[in-house]
Simulated scan of single mutants.
Amino acid sequence: MKDLRELYSEVEVKVADPVVSFCETVVESSSMKCFAETPNKKNKITMIAEPLDRGLAEDIENGVVSIDWNRKQLGDFFRTKYDWDLLAARSIWAFGPDKQGPNILLDDTLPTEVDRNLMMAVKDSIVQGFQWGAREGPLCDEPIRNVKFKIVDARIAPEPLMEPVYYVEIQTPIDCVTAIYTVLSRRRGHVTSDVPQPGTPAYIVKAFLPVIESFGFETDLRYHTQGQAFCLSVFDHWAIVPGDPLDKAIQLRPLEPAPIQHLAREFMVKTRRRKGMSEDVSGNKFFDEAMMVELAQQTGDLHLQMI
């Protein structure tokens, strides 16, 4: 350090305390089922967490087992080496964080209780959330290790509408970080991390921003940070839009932003208007007359059963 200060750089060098990286984990199964709901209350995911089998985390990290294997290969591996039942072994959705992270997400829902097609429709979004959570744990934003996350129940809205989402990386001085959070929150943005950039006084803010909310974002960002923040945006994934696109009771008023729970309806109506289509979806366009009659009869029978 003396040579660095006096011989090479001729500047004062401050030495911080040694930094130790930690991992977060669980030591026993969840004492209660935890759930999360979307703002429109129409989608609900219930999960539990429990420790992984001893040695499994290391097998994933060392490439002994890969999430890219087909379901049969995964099933045979987990059944043979870790005595998992075949159904659980073939229900694995992801390792995380990333493809070789030491955590597992699996679908433990019952086909008789949860619509499998609807689960597959939202699988990518759930996996994305699992990856975020495994990368930054709840205790101190350290990576999670050696945990099995099990989806035990799900209630999924039957009319999903998906929108593209940007991954945004913003370089900014530390005193502008709060302003960046404010700008992102107004545009339905979600910050995943903000960390100092090594060797500089700048911070790197990483976030996800719906593409439809990104128009004018860079100008807005520079205005609120006095031109000190710079951003880079790339497409990252598709996410389900909150709300029910077929809810005709929703009133959309011109020049007024729609509440979050009405966004799916707003996006659908505006897109149909732009394409010169009628505002509402009509089943007559997609089904022949015989199918429409059968659907009407089934609806009538269901109504009678409810009465």
Rank of each mutant, 00 (worst) to 15 (best):
L246F: 15
H224D: 04
I240W: 03
R274T: 14
K285R: 10
T225C: 00
K248M: 06
F217R: 05
P245R: 02
M268A: 01
K206C: 03
G227N: 01
H224E: 06
G216Q: 05
M268T: 00
I212M: 11
F215Y: 15
F230R: 02
I250D: 02
Y223H: 14
F230G: 02
V241I: 06
Y203G: 01
R274Q: 15
Q251T: 13
Y223A: 11
L263K: 02
M268N: 01
E256Q: 12
D247K: 02
Y223N: 13
R274D: 15
V205H: 00
P254E: 12
L246N: 08
V234M: 14
L255R: 09
S214G: 07
Y223W: 13
P257N: 04
Q226W: 04
Q228D: 06
Y203D: 00
P201D: 02
P254F: 12
D236S: 12
L232D: 13
Q226F: 04
M277Y: 10
R253S: 05
D236Y: 06
Q261A: 13
L255D: 15
S278Q: 15
I240E: 06
H262E: 04
L232I: 07
T219V: 07
P254Q: 15
A249D: 14
P242K: 04
P259H: 05
I204A: 00
T219W: 08
A202C: 14
R222T: 05
G216H: 06
T225I: 01
G243E: 00
T225S: 00
I212P: 04
D247F: 02
F230I: 02
E218P: 05
S233E: 09
L221H: 08
A229W: 00
S214A: 12
E279C: 07
H262A: 05
R253D: 09
W238N: 12
R253H: 07
R274H: 14
K206W: 00
P242N: 05
G276Y: 09
I212E: 03
D244G: 07
